[in-house]
Design a protein around this nucleic acid. Sequence first.
DNA 1: ACGGATGTTATTAA
DNA 2: ATTAATAACATCCG
Length: 267
Amino acid sequence: MPELPDVESFKIYTRETSLRKQIVKVACPDKRVLKKISCSKIKKGLIGRQFIRINRRGKFLIFGVSGTPQKLIFHFGMTGDLHYIPQEAPREGLDRFTRFLIGFQNSHELRWINVRGLGKIYFLSEPKDIPLIREMGPEPFSLSKQEFRKLLKVHQNRIIKAFLLDQRAIAGIGNVYSDEILFQAKIHPKRKIKELSSSEISLLFQKMKEVLREAVRVRPPLGMLFGAGWLLNHRDKDMRCSRNGKHLLKKETIAGRSAVFCPHCQR
DNA sequence: ACGGATGTTATTAA
DNA sequence: ATTAATAACATCCG
């Protein structure tokens, strides 16, 4: 789940729930997710303080803290969620996998839920000390079409799916949304970038922004649905192309991930 | 029971 | 030097 749109909605959610509240508790039920930092150091840095800023960079969520330059940084890995909930709420369902939590003075807590334990938590002053942040490519939402064309030029020898997935090339796009973007742009995931036409690049740029923007819009108030034309509604389900119910979607390993696409519509 | 899963990284191969 | 494929990480789900 946690690709750019998901982390963006975590940002909105935590800004609405967790900003400017006195932190009174920090718990780390699973130390393995803490990177180069102990639970007691995080406690020392957070307790008695407040979150004053929450930002996103790629798939990272970054919390600025009052009275210290240190920032709390979450990466969710393959699975993740955040629940702001009364502290007495039972840890059942997904909440069983709370591997880190912040308690506030109002008796609510922010639970960092990470089913598979591949997520990571950092507490440091300089986000760029995390190699992936230091080397991360530009944010899709801040790219102009001209910059996008330049970026593709730099990566012209790669296949398009690998480019979209590479955080060092462009930030925040993961497997599901890269498939969706390519489906909507009608581009086969294995196409070489240098062989894309100018109009294909234009459409790709437009669809990249549309898909990500729409996914951010659909996410937060839980339950809203993606449009009928979306590949997302069919992958892991009936595997039928939403453009023509007769075409069967294909699943193939590309750039190390299982790509789902319509061999008929995507060329 | 086995394979696969929305991510990243180190290693190996091409 | 680049780029792509692979395994590994941890754990749940169908």
